[in-house]
Computed example of a mutant assay.
Amino acid sequence: MLKKNFVAFGLLAMSALAQAGQTIDVYRDPNCGCCKEWISHLRDNGFSVNDHVEPNMSAVKQRLGVAPRLASCHTGVIDGKFVEGHVPAEQIQLLAKRPDLRGLAVPGMPMGSPGMEMGDHKDAYQVIGLTRDGTDEVVANYP
């Protein structure tokens, strides 16, 4: 019985990773360490990552329509939508189910968010969705 449960759990986990097996382009500053950590978080959660080192991140954000109020240190693009900052992989996976959103953002660099893990300290933060009409919507809260 235990062996069957273990096999079932393994198949379920592999299925979740296969569903997440999307490609995301990540644009980052060459000197930012937390960006590399976020990329590791994505890969650990089944994403294929194209890593682009950019000397002018402001231009990238402007081209993709990332509002300054949503800005962080790196910007991803998946299926034509932006992913700004330390957005957890689980939220990116749900982005495909939200055609009303232009992208997701975790503004700033909250401690404890993916890529910003440093000890036990965790800041509360929100994942913000930018709707097609330009308004912000809280899509997830992390305590």
Rank of each mutant, 00 (worst) to 15 (best):
T131I: 06
P114C: 13
E90W: 00
K36N: 12
K3D: 05
L11N: 10
K3E: 09
L12Y: 06
P114R: 12
G21S: 15
L94W: 05
V139P: 06
L70E: 04
G103T: 12
S113T: 08
A96S: 15
P99R: 05
M57H: 03
H121Q: 14
H121Y: 14
A71W: 02
D44R: 10
V139Y: 07
N5R: 12
V26D: 06
K122N: 13
R132P: 03
Y125S: 13
S40A: 12
W38T: 06
H121L: 14
L94M: 14
H121F: 14
P114D: 11
S58Q: 09
A18M: 13
S72A: 15
T23R: 13
P99D: 07
Q126Y: 03
L104Q: 07
R132C: 06
K4F: 01
V83P: 14
V83F: 07
F9W: 04
A140G: 10
R102N: 14
A71N: 07
H74W: 09
T135Y: 06
S15G: 15
A71D: 04
G108W: 04
G46A: 03
N45K: 01
Y125P: 09
Y27T: 08
V127W: 01
Q62S: 13
L42V: 01
P114L: 11
Q62A: 15
V139G: 10
V77Y: 01
Y125Q: 12
P55C: 00
L130G: 11
G134A: 08
D136N: 14
S72H: 09
L101F: 00
V66P: 01
P88W: 04
V83C: 11
